[in-house]
Design a protein around this nucleic acid. Structure first.
Lengths: 183, 183
DNA sequence: AAAAAGATTAAATAAATTTTTAACAAATTT
DNA sequence: AAATTTGTTAAAAATTTATTTAATCTTTTT
């Protein structure tokens, strides 16, 4: 292999590494471990990978790759593929960022809505009981009412978040914000 | 104070705690420490708080409250208020979840777009240099082209994310997804 | 069915983050 | 201006999280 060919290969690797670094750095803000972030970013430039290839490429242990892949599969940023002939499992990175965005945020927001709405509903029932309780003093009733109303008000946000998730899932949001609206 | 009054007070506290727990639990998925998450959730039910009140209420150290408040101020979930007469600093929680949503995600997405777009632009330049290099072999040129195109394609997503941020900041998104569209 | 290869789980280690204690700096009151 | 109160910074301790080594389980091949 010639000298300049080798130089070009290195330049290509360096260019990829710039993007890999940036993706990995923003990804750990998405709640994944550094290992998983680096792994995804690396796979972004690969057709497919086996666990052993991941291990050699990142210089990490196999269990670390195994758990990272699983985590990435949970948020659907990596999928298992069947590769004829190889008995090793092979994985591919989701390269469409729109799909990753949709799965990740919908999952996150649905969890938030569910968890908080459940707590709110329970708490509101409690406040109603205090309000209806004939032994409650006026100031206690007023306090319970205040909190009840505050929670009722906050529901507007959670309903909106539900709508946002729905419009992302259905793709309706792309009618409002088209994907290809250039620069 | 009567016995039943005391019971009602306890019921109110328990009801609040349910919501505080839920908010705090979803919040540490937003990249804040447990202390900051608990603090915000607690402040959500208070008019305003001083550092000393926070410390007693959460049973934590003052520096911990100080750093937590600062972090919450960064993502604009807490603001400092001037309280006449008191020499202690007082803080209030942002109780409008829409505003918190806007600030937090716009900040997050702007950072992601900036960081990744910068890396992409640099990498694409590198790939162009390899492509234009007369000493590059055909397969190297093909590889560089492949990566260049992949990055070019991914820009669509970042442009879209920019648009999303803009429509959130301007409030235009609420024309598409109204805040008050009931249940 | 035995052997080998691959992947996962469990326990232990290592690393990073969070929180606290203690010292310091700034501001307010007397 | 000295003394006191409040808030922040720095270093240390503690907790949590991430990663690895070792052991186990699963699958595939012979």
């Amino acid at each position: 292999m010639s000298d300049s060919t080798e130089k070009s290969r290195i330049k290509i690797e360096e260019a990829k590494d710039k993007v890999i670094g940036a993706i990995a750095e923003t990804m750990d803000l998405y709640g994944v471990t550094p290992a998983a972030a680096n792994l995804y970013a690396t796979m972004y430039f690969k057709e497919q990978m086996t666990l052993d290839e991941m291990r050699t490429e990142l210089g990490m242990s196999k269990p670390s790759m195994s758990t990272s892949v699983r985590k990435l599969q949970e948020i659907e940023m990596v999928k298992k593929t069947f590769t004829r002939g190889s008995r090793k499992h092979t994985y591919v990175a989701e390269k469409n960022f729109f799909r990753s965005f949709m799965v990740f945020y919908c999952q996150m927001w649905e969890r938030e809505v569910k968890m908080n709405m459940e707590a709110i509903e329970e708490a509101q029932e409690d406040f109603i009981n205090v309000i209806k309780d004939s032994t409650s003093t006026p100031d206690i009733v007023a306090e319970a009412k205040k909190y009840y109303d505050q929670l009722e008000d906050s529901k507007t946000y959670y309903y909106w978040l539900e709508d946002l998730v729905a419009s992302i899932k259905s793709g309706k949001i792309f009618e409002f914000l088209p994907k290809d609206k250039q620069d």
